[in-house]
Design a protein around this nucleic acid. Structure first.
Lengths: 213, 213
DNA sequence: CGCCTCATTGACCTAGTTCAATTTGGGTGG
DNA sequence: CCACCCAAATTGAACTAGGTCAATGAGGCG
């Protein structure tokens, strides 16, 4: 239930296929879930921000299907599985809190599936920006309509299923359309409502409890 | 903990946005999770087969982010949330079984994200066929290297992010390459290992306990 | 027989890829 | 402070996987 760890940008936080005896709460930094296929292509399946449980799956599953990687310097708090066991036995409803976290991950995954399967170019990238903006907002990490987004264009492409060349072009178009701007490791969204409308973004799938906007 | 229901092909089993007081175990038929965007485009996010808990998310989440639809005639057993509550209070570890089911859904979602983001044409469709073959096999629904797959080409396209025209062409190519054949509402896979190798399919993400092949 | 859904096919088009260069900017050693 | 390096961003040109449009088959069913 205690224990902290620190990771540099680029470091692996939890490797695929490994068995570990704790789960992690990310409390500083940005990380991602990534899968790599045989050809060496990388797919980012989710982005994680402070407040996220990032590897709850290491608790009920015996081995992990993907890797957690730090995109910036990250700090995690460790929850040892033995302690989770004890807590659940003691307060059965605690399991529900953890379960809920898994549910929202699954819901976010489904939205990404929709994003990859049905949206293209501007809308696909805009939608991702809307999601990150909304999630960042809840944990107080949006300032002046912008938030830290330290991915390179190549990494952004790995999340969106685009090549980095195409990412560059889409970023330019979003900027020209004044819908969103990704520069200096931040995303700037002047008019969130307008971008959300443009991309068909509906935050319901995030299951955020507090909604400021 | 009791109660059954029957749905015709095409019927909605659990509608998006609704609050219900039970979760369902699918014990006959094939269903899918689908999301529809503003333009009316449909994305199938997961296929469900007998043995799957199909709407556990209705238990911890107050509203649903997607719709469950029957693709063939489906039969479900109802688990009322009050009964689940009681069971969890009584036997805390029971929550873990349900949680595990959610974990594997999330894992399957991640693989689909990878499939949509990094694989194209033959490999994308072949990978889906491998997944369904493996899952069907575990519940004894593979016969003579084939299994029931009652989706139309248009629906298959909604799962894979292709148009039905392109699906038709990919099906034809898979058939010509003798990798897989989709016809008469079934998928035939003569040499599973060969198809799996071709698509880079690794069943680890399915967390199947028994593996026959 | 006529209707309707689904599968199939051809011709053309475009979003996104590939390949290849060039630029930009921060970091580092001298 | 300057020269150099390297990762990341940017751009152009040619190419292709997959989309769009439109027509035709093919089977099931009242």
């Amino acid at each position: 239930m205690d224990g902290e760890a620190r990771f540099d940008a680029g470091e692996t936080i939890v490797p695929e296929g490994e068995k570990i005896n704790y789960s992690s709460l990310l409390f500083a930094g940005i990380a991602c879930r990534e899968k790599i296929n045989f050809e060496g292509e990388r797919q980012i399946a989710e982005l994680q921000i402070p407040g996220d449980f990032i590897d709850l799956h290491s608790y009920p599953l015996e081995r992990l299907d993907h890797t957690l990687t730090a995109l910036t310097e990250c700090k995690i708090a460790k929850l040892y599985h033995d302690d989770i066991d004890a807590l659940i036995d003691e307060r059965p409803r605690f399991a529900r809190i953890l379960w809920f976290a898994t549910m929202t991950d699954a819901s976010i995954h489904r939205e990404w599936i929709q994003n990859l399967g049905t949206r293209s170019g501007l809308k696909r990238m805009g939608h991702l920006f809307c999601e990150m903006y909304s999630r960042m907002d809840v944990v107080g990490l949006v300032e002046n309509n912008s938030f830290a987004f330290p991915l390179t264009q190549a990494q952004l492409g790995e999340a969106l299923g685009f090549t980095f060349v195409h990412v560059n072009r889409v970023v330019k178009q979003l900027r020209a359309a004044k819908l969103a701007d990704h520069r200096d490791k931040r995303v700037y969204i002047e008019d969130f409502e307008r971008l959300a409308e443009f991309c068909g973004f509906d935050p319901a799938y995030l299951y955020l409890t507090r909604r400021e906007r």
